[in-house]
Design a protein around this nucleic acid. Structure first.
Lengths: 341, 341
DNA sequence: CTGAAAGCGCTTACAG
DNA sequence: CTGAAAGCGCTTACAG
């Protein structure tokens, strides 16, 4: 095995000390151009790469960001991570990615591990189960920059980036009403999960604004996944609710509802106009759901990273600022730009 | 700011040296149970967490794996990363995730950065443009364990995990023929990209096996994205090719083909049986493509990580072994287990 | 423009 | 069972 080259290897060959080599390589003004040139040549020749671990120990910076997501194999979070990567890499940071799998305990462990790794900052989207905030208070004590994205914990003075769920829900449901839908049911998440609550509130607000009294019979709460959508739709049918439209809290919920419709009476699929939060991730061959709220994952990731780097560089303070990224109300259509990978 | 606690802080409080504290915390047999207990209590009390950077510098292990993927916001790679995470975390490793964006230069830079970070091993899926193998030879020289997944470079003696593209293509096309399809066109990738070549070869092999002579007119090569599918299908129509089935090299290619069909004559959508590599990632409301080859991303990620850890632990040698993960030929259907997030 | 000294927080190997 | 010594590869702060 080739032992990895160190500063000293270059120093010996040049009859200098490692201090000078270190400076030369970092383009420090102390060193003459001719020396720098020579150093770079030899470094190249022997394949020298700085040991970032050693550098981090002295500089107390790792140029590394810790990320915690609830899931990675989900279209939305995959896009957020893509946005984080893009922004961070362009600025010389690498990403340590961890997945909590919606488990508050795992989330805590990952944050502790990332702090132990001395990441320069943290980007986290909390799991749906997270109620304890001890870890976050500990992170705050240590003054480690942290920015929440998508799912945040209010009241801890961390900055956050998210979409304005309540407003997006309200505006979209208003659009639906304007397009002629009169009886809009809602299959929602849970009220103890912030996005579930806000989307339900937005839905009710929209109805009221349009002079419709929200009917508790038309609302089913129960989760964010396919099963929740399936069970929710069956429950609406059990209750003999009449509807011409359905507002689903997430795309998987809409999907579950479609499965239920197909089971009950497949003509319902074209009779009920569905609005869901989140893109299916596939366009062009599926005309359902008819409308959706586009959640710009990339932009959320980029903005969160931008804010985090500002905190790291002392250009921004953690003051509990919540930055909203605008969403779009989209009709599922056939014309869209073709992507070439 | 609370300065982070170090071994020495505990040592001073206990009138011991940091060496003993280090041993106690690592449960070294040298230390008495009572001392260990006391050390752990104080560590807990003052919120001590080991500085992994310092530990890595002495132990020359980081418990960190470097990952390079061409894309992250793609269903398949997101699943691979999920599999890597799951397996690695369970064994005490963290993941540094990088994205090459299909750019060979970026891929190289990321690998260099990961090596500088002293990762214990590398998991990489090469970009489609990668032709230069210098970096990989350099990694080999340094004896850093590396396992390729999905997209590999043969001939460098690294182990790899992938699906058997040729065989999966062949078996699936044979199935299609058995189901009655007689004129199967193919929209393929490029021959210089290994998966493109293998899938085309499998397609031709299947036809021959079933006594059909492959017709070059029925094959269009041109990429792996939506645009390639769109243009490919138009080209087939230009050539006045008659077909009752289409084998698309990827799901996006199938999607692009569907867009073209809708433009040309939407009844084609039900007349042409489409087989694609890769799941749409959404089930239940889309009956298209009618068949697909399921690529088990999770399992690929897990197996690659398992092999990498074996190399790191000296239980496996890099000998150019290529491990195939089985795929499944699936009919797109309505019944599937409902996921609850 | 170059270098000697000190240290980052930890572990390893050796001694008692 | 406990500790003194040395060092991982680098950077910082100071001196010349």
């Amino acid at each position: 095995m080739k032992r990895r080259a160190t500063l000293n290897d270059i120093a010996i060959r040049m009859n200098l000390t490692k201090v000078s080599i270190s400076k030369a390589l970092r383009d420090h003004p102390d060193i003459s151009e001719s020396t720098k040139k020579k150093v770079r040549e030899i470094a190249e020749e022997i394949g020298y790469r700085p040991n970032l671990i050693a550098r981090s120990l002295t500089s107390s910076r790792t140029s590394t960001l810790g990320v915690v997501v609830p899931k990675i194999a989900h279209n939305f979070f995959a896009h957020v991570v893509a946005g984080i990567q893009k922004y961070a890499n362009a600025r010389g940071y690498e990403i340590v990615l961890t997945v909590s799998d919606e488990d508050a305990e795992l989330e805590k462990k990952h944050i502790e591990a990332l702090v132990s790794m001395q990441v320069d900052g943290l980007l986290v989207s909390v799991s749906m189960q997270t109620k304890q905030t001890d870890v976050y208070k500990w992170v705050k004590d240590l003054q480690i920059p942290l920015v929440f994205f998508d799912r945040y914990i209010p009241g801890l003075d961390f900055n956050s980036v998210a979409i304005d769920d309540q407003r997006a829900a309200k505006d979209s449901v208003v659009e639906l009403i304007k397009k002629g839908c009169k009886k809009i049911a809602h299959i929602g998440g849970y009220d103890h999960v912030i996005i579930g609550q806000q989307r339900r509130l937005g839905y009710e607000e929209a109805l009221k604004k349009q002079g419709i009294d929200p009917d508790p019979q038309m609302i089913v709460l129960g989760g964010f996944g396919e099963a929740a959508g399936y069970n929710g739709f069956k429950e609406l049918i059990n209750r003999k609710v009449e509807m011409d439209a359905l507002f689903a809290v997430t795309f998987p919920v809409a999907l579950g509802a479609y499965v239920a419709m197909r089971e009950i009476d497949s003509t319902l699929i074209d009779k009920i106009t569905v609005l869901a939060f989140g893109d299916s991730g596939i366009r062009g061959i599926v005309p359902y759901p008819q409308y959706y709220v586009d959640q710009p994952g990339m932009e959320i990731g980029q903005m969160a990273t931008e804010m985090l780097l500002k905190e790291i560089n002392g250009e921004m303070k953690p003051v509990g600022h919540l930055e909203y990224i605008p969403t779009r109300f989209v009709k599922t259509g056939w014309d869209f730009p073709l992507l070439d990978f």
